[in-house]
Amino acid sequence: MTIRIAVLAKQVPDPEIPPSQFNIDESAKSIIPPNGVPPVVNGFDLNAVEGALQLRDSGAEVEISIISVGAEFVMDVMKKTLAMGADRLILVDDHNLDKIDAAATVKILSAAINKDGPFDLIIGGRQASDWDQAHVIIGLAEALKLPLVSLVQKLQINEYGISLHRVVPDGYQVINSKMPAVLTITNELGEPRYPNLRGIMQASKKIPDVLSLADLGLSAEDLVPKLELSKLYVPESNRQVEIVNGDDDADSGKKLALRMREEKLI
């Protein structure tokens, strides 16, 4: 029996933009990506794709559908998930969708999942690196009324359904869950695999399903935000560093200890 997996993935600005090149347009309340830096698939979502692929590697027959909600998709970026080994790519693309809040995202995702489902597993990254909210997938579990296991670092099909290792502050839990279930995946699962040439070739031939809000039976009125973004700005740092300079590195180390002592830090 094929296990149907929906992996939710988001296109985000590259989170590794160095702080010195990170700029905000305060009046538009949006980030200005530095020239020539393309967006990426949210890193934790790639961990989620990797998790789904690991189930396939372990011998289970799986079908992996990537579902993404957003605006201005860059096809080469989103197709990385197909190149890694996912089977299908579903994009809910609407120019209004870069300004919606998490509650609206949950509505759209659950409509897309219901349209294309049923799925045995619905998984996504632990959080997205743009708004860092970490609650869309949790909200989705509530909307779909399914069990939720967050921060999964290992997953394996077993006789109960699925066995999961969930990261907790000082170790991990081993959890048995029924399927269908909703999971969030954390980077402890391991690096997402690099697409190989064959994967890239196959991905280039695949055509994503592009859906509009209307295709999902939704309209802008269904997506009224619960929060209003009133300001977006880069915080000012007024810290002034004192560089401790010795004759050489070793001397600097010694002087550092003395300076810290003078300031009663040690």
Partner: peptide
């Protein structure tokens, strides 16, 4: 260094042993 109060620009391999001794 934009966030720090004190800094040493140097290789930890040389800085840390003398720091620990001190």
């Amino acid at each position: 260094f934009r966030e720090a109060r004190f800094g040493v620009v140097g290789d930890w391999e040389n800085v840390l042993p003398s720091f620990l001794d001190a």
